[in-house]
């Protein structure tokens, strides 16, 4: 039998090991606690509201854009994972923002822009919501819904592979509007006074005109064709398995 009194240094070693283990556990716990917390990216960019543009490339997480008549673009991003990294650049009135790390968790963007700001928003896994803008708008997401509310720009492109595309806004007689949802609903609310030409493809042919009297429209056809009002603006719709629904704005 070994007696500890014969090896007094063993007690010191044992104590050191216990202390080290405890400290390590504390550090791990602190890290776990930190990773559960959000880190926040918040920045304001001075721009000319007439010529401002914002390009955002996100990966996961919702993007919400609202407007305010100020000479600035404000971006607030809540980063759920510590591995997420944002890179932002500004060149004159053009602001670019990119989520860099593909292993990052969700990043929740809340963005305020001048109403005439040009927007180019892309996201892989997350919803994109844009409200009240008047500028050129390009919105693409793979696996999230796109909701465009109270839009009055003349160029709008909204594409989602498996999410819904919901548009509620004006249709300018000089405008071009492209909406695509491969596998989900395209829901359009347009003014009763709008004028547009309709083109595109609905593979299942499931189109609900919602009371709009679209001339030359062939119900049940895969090919979407027709005109409404004077037939000014161009609306191009593409869906494979999704439904297309029109509504008249009240």
């Amino acid at each position: 039998m070994i007696r500890i009194t014969r090896f007094p240094q063993c007690g010191l070693i044992f104590g050191f090991l216990v202390l080290s283990f405890s400290l390590t556990s504390l550090v791990w716990a602190a890290e776990a606690e930190l990773s559960g917390n959000l880190s926040v990216f918040s920045r304001t960019y001075q721009v000319n509201p007439q010529t401002a543009s914002l390009s955002l490339r996100g990966i996961t997480g919702p993007i919400t854009v609202t407007t305010a008549e100020r000479n600035e673009i404000r971006i607030k991003a809540e980063l759920s994972a510590p591995s997420a990294k944002l890179m932002d650049t500004q060149l004159d009135n053009k602001v670019q923002l990119e989520v860099l790390n593909d292993n990052s968790g969700p990043v929740r963007f809340e963005i305020v822009v001048p109403s005439r700001c040009t927007l180019d928003l892309k996201c892989i896994d997350g919803a994109i919501t844009v409200n009240d803008t008047q500028g050129k708008l390009t919105v693409e997401t793979t696996d999230g819904d796109i909701t465009l509310h109270n839009i009055s720009g003349t160029e709008v492109i909204a594409r989602s592979t498996s999410g819904k595309v919901i548009y509620d806004g004006d249709i300018s007689p000089q405008g071009n509007y492209t909406f695509q949802s491969f596998n989900n609903l395209i829901d359009l609310t347009v003014p009763a006074s709008a004028s547009f030409q309709l083109a595109g493809t609905a593979f299942t042919g499931d189109v609900n005109l919602g009371g709009l009297n679209i001339a030359n429209f062939i119900p049940g056809s895969r090919k979407l064709i027709g005109s409404y009002g004077q037939g000014g603006g161009k609306i191009h719709l593409t869906t494979h398995k999704g439904q297309i629904r029109f509504h008249k704005k009240k």
Binding site: I59, T60, D102, N103, I124, T142, S162, H240, K241
Partner: peptide, 24 residues
């Protein structure tokens, strides 16, 4: 190298498009 969530999104949406291609 992608995180599992991104990989699932990729594979699910690819399957949707591939099915469309097959049907067409």
């Amino acid at each position: 190298n992608w995180n599992p969530q991104i990989r699932r999104v990729f594979e699910r949406n690819m399957a949707i498009i591939d099915q469309s291609l097959e049907e067409c």
